[in-house]
Amino acid sequence: MGRFSKMHGLGNDFVVIDARETALDMTEARAMAIADRHAGIGCDQLILIGNSDRADVSMRIFNSDGSEVEACGNATRCVPLFIGRDVLIETKAGLLDAKAVDGGASVDMGQPRLEWDAIPLSYAMDTLTMPVSWEDLPAPVAVNVGNPHVIFFVDDLDGVNFDRLGPLIEHDPLFPARVNVNFAQMVGDNHIRLIVWERGAGLTRACGTGACATAVAAVRRKLVSGPTTVSLPGGDLVIDWTPGGHIMMTGPATHVFDGEADWARF
């Protein structure tokens, strides 16, 4: 039997497994089975906490479709709550410093990558005003914050067909590693409303890396100045970034319950 915790960040929910003492071989099929909400435990992402030679712990992230991804901002905020202290976390996106704050955590998400080949895109282009679009969406911005994002600033978020456009853009050949699709609307000074179609997971109640990428895009477009509140369906995150600096993300993290499971059954 293995222990796990069910946690969430703004409704983006996780099964968090501590594999530091007993290693767990995580395959795409096993991750999908655990994430299944009907026959498994159920989650948007499965988080595997392991040992690290470079940090306090390592973190691997698996989407509900079994694919392993580089970064997950909401999950990163859950790690200090899971471990019980501030932690330096090794991820595929690099080292992330997560500190507990009242009701959640503040995470240094590192520096964004803005070059076309770092997103990655299939060919060279300006990532601030991309000379491409889909249907009647405006020209987007591309940002990599450990994982790839494309951001569309729209006038009316409620008029966007997320279910059609999300998968269309996620799987477009322009994005060789697929892409997270962010639909954003300015709703006030330094205040953005955001809906995210998450790569490998679909529509999500919250996406921490999406909030980071969108705030970076808004700063680059000169739509915001200073710390920015990003309102997602699950709640709010505060993102602070100045060009050339690191992205700071602050928001809630919640422990729901602990459980045990026989991983050999998955």
Score class of each variant (00 low, 15 high):
L81I: 03
G84V: 12
G84L: 11
D86C: 05
I89R: 10
E90P: 02
T91L: 05
T91A: 04
A93M: 13
A93E: 10
G94I: 03
G94T: 07
G94R: 07
L96S: 12
A98Q: 09
A98F: 11
K99D: 01
K99T: 06
G104W: 04
A105L: 05
V107I: 14
M109G: 14
Q111N: 10
P112Q: 12
R113W: 05
R113P: 00
L114E: 13
W116L: 05
D117H: 15
D117R: 14
A118M: 11
I119H: 11
P120K: 09
L121R: 02
S122G: 15
M125Q: 15
L128I: 10
T129N: 04
M130A: 15
P131V: 04
V132W: 15
S133V: 06
W134K: 00
W134I: 03
D136H: 03
L137P: 05
A139Q: 00
A139V: 01
A139R: 03
P140G: 00
P140Q: 03
V143A: 04
V143E: 02
N144I: 00
H149L: 01
I151Q: 03
F152K: 10
F153P: 00
V154W: 01
D156R: 14
D156T: 13
L157C: 11
D158C: 04
G159L: 02
D163Q: 13
R164F: 13
R164L: 14
R164K: 14
R164N: 11
L165V: 09
P167L: 14
I169M: 07
D172M: 05
P173E: 13
L174R: 13
P176L: 07
P176H: 09
P176D: 09
